[in-house]
Simulated assay, not measured.
Amino acid sequence: MLDLIIESRQAVIAPGFSVKRILPFRLKRMIGPFIFMDHGGPISVPATTNLDVLPHPHIGLSTVSYLLEGNVTHRDSLGVEQLIKPGEVNWMTAGKGIAHSERFEDPAILAGGGLEMIQTWVALPEKDEEADPSFKNYTAEELPVFTDKGVWMRLIAGDAYGLTSHVKTSSPLFYLHVVLNEGARFGLPMEHSERGVYIVKGSVEVNGVTYTEGRLLVFTKGVDPLIIAKENATLMMLGGEHLGDRYIWWNFVSSRKERIEQAKEDWKQGRILLPPADNKEFIPLPEDNSRPAGGPPPGALS
């Protein structure tokens, strides 16, 4: 059965840059190891608009940036500079601490409505929370693709439907980009205990009810739902095995409250280095009672 419907909410991540925030949600903080999900775009703004997300820190998680359209330049404190393009997987593991920026350096793309991206965060197992930070770009050609009548699917990460992605992960999960033609039928992978379907575009029917874009459908363990495209639809499917409870504040994730407090102080004191190629400005640590622009509202997962 359908366990929960999560309606996306508007969140501002940079001046003039609003996204649809899906996770975390008060009734469902995580789906498998996925603890955060934003959907940005399609975006159409004047070419003079600056939507850049300035350097900011992370701990205890991996960020997964996936573009449907456009491009964005990633720079981080490891010295990595990567132009992210549609269909690629950009997996940044923060571990004990990293800072990165996301710059939109092609004004024509923004003005033409040609930017659309999904960013998720994957919480790390406790044993990996203090790992050294890393970044890896995987091209679209490296990722498994499956096609059938009215169905196109790319396995971004993990295991699903007998396919395995070569993207390196730290815990059992699946993450899929699925495109369905009107009338096409599709199911969810059964091997994972927590599963969700986010409707990026179009609408789908489940158990005789139609659901439209901007919603995340969360399904009970063991249920095998039939998803029918009511029109051409784009979906992101994600889930996996639960890691245990996590605390989340701004851009920090940890299994320990005190580690979040340490990360706050580390950022204030400059102990998390800025990207060497983007170190002239940064997002300051928000006040504890604020709702910061760079991440989800402060709060604990208990």
Rank of each mutant, 00 (worst) to 15 (best):
N71K: 13
N71C: 14
V72T: 08
V72F: 07
V72I: 14
T73R: 06
T73V: 14
T73H: 01
T73I: 09
H74T: 06
H74G: 03
H74W: 08
R75P: 08
R75W: 01
R75N: 08
D76V: 13
D76K: 10
D76G: 08
D76Q: 09
S77I: 08
S77M: 09
L78T: 13
L78D: 13
L78Y: 14
G79T: 14
G79W: 12
G79V: 12
V80P: 00
V80I: 04
V80F: 09
E81M: 08
E81Q: 15
Q82L: 04
Q82H: 10
L83M: 11
L83P: 00
I84V: 15
I84M: 12
I84F: 02
K85I: 11
P86Y: 04
P86E: 07
P86Q: 02
G87C: 09
E88A: 13
V89R: 03
V89C: 10
N90M: 05
W91C: 05
M92S: 10
M92C: 09
M92G: 06
M92V: 15
M92H: 06
M92A: 14
T93F: 03
A94W: 10
A94F: 07
A94V: 10
G95D: 05
K96P: 00
K96T: 14
K96A: 12
K96F: 11
G97M: 05
G97T: 11
G97V: 06
G97I: 08
G97C: 08
I98N: 06
I98D: 05
I98C: 09
H100Q: 11
H100Y: 10
H100P: 13
H100C: 09
H100L: 11
S101Q: 04
S101V: 02
S101E: 05
E102M: 12
E102R: 07
E102C: 12
R103K: 09
F104E: 03
F104C: 07
F104N: 01
F104K: 01
F104H: 08
E105L: 13
E105W: 00
D106C: 06
D106N: 14
P107K: 08
P107F: 12
A108P: 00
I109K: 09
I109Y: 07
I109C: 09
L110D: 01
L110C: 02
A111P: 00
A111W: 00
A111M: 00
G112Q: 07
G112S: 14
G112W: 01
G113V: 01
G114Q: 06
G114L: 06
G114S: 09
G114W: 03
L115T: 00
L115D: 01
L115G: 00
E116F: 00
E116Y: 01
M117F: 15
I118F: 07
I118C: 05
Q119G: 11
T120W: 13
T120L: 15
T120I: 15
T120S: 14
T120D: 04
W121R: 05
W121I: 06
W121P: 15
W121N: 07
W121V: 10
W121A: 03
W121T: 04
V122T: 04
